[in-house]
Amino acid sequence: MADVKYYDVILKPVVTEKSMNAMAEKKYTFLVHTDATKNQIKEAVEKMFEGTKVKSVNTMNQDGKNRRRGMVVGKTSKTKKAIVTLTADSKDIEIFEGL
């Protein structure tokens, strides 16, 4: 497994209607590095966003989709999503404010 640092774990937030509705329950969705473990994701969120305490992390591995361009057949890259649940006394994550 690759040596993944905490600042390489979280790639970008997922902004969809479903993920925005889950923010009311202190659940935040991120695209993460495919080799990242749940412990690494928890550590990265707590280090990158001050005042946050992670209660649990749920992850999903998504295979690449089949794509065709003319006669050339290929696949898009694999992705991994993480839904991070914060504790009740934790601060909210600032990057989602105002969305």
Rank of each mutant, 00 (worst) to 15 (best):
V14T: 10
N21D: 15
K12A: 13
K27L: 02
V4M: 08
M20E: 13
V9L: 09
M20R: 14
V14G: 04
K27W: 03
V4A: 00
L31V: 15
P13N: 05
D8Y: 07
K26G: 03
E25K: 14
V15H: 01
V14N: 03
I10K: 06
F30C: 01
S19C: 04
P13L: 00
E17H: 08
P13D: 02
K5T: 15
N21L: 15
V14R: 04
L11Y: 02
K26T: 02
K26D: 07
N21A: 15
N21W: 10
K26L: 02
V15R: 05
F30W: 09
V32F: 01
V15C: 08
K5P: 07
V9P: 07
M23V: 13
Y6M: 11
L31M: 15
V32K: 00
F30Q: 04
Y6R: 07
E17A: 07
A22R: 13
E17F: 09
K12N: 10
M23R: 14
K18T: 06
S19D: 05
L11D: 00
V14C: 06
K26M: 10
V4R: 09
K27V: 05
K27H: 01
K12T: 10
A22C: 09
D8Q: 14
V32H: 00
N21I: 13
E17G: 13
T16I: 12
K18P: 07
D8E: 15
I10A: 01
V15A: 08
E17T: 08
A24F: 11
T16G: 08
D8R: 10
V4H: 04
T29W: 01
I10C: 04
V4Y: 01
Y7F: 13
E17R: 09
V9C: 07
E17V: 11
E17P: 02
M23F: 05
I10H: 05
Y6C: 10
H33D: 10
S19E: 05
T29A: 10
T16D: 07
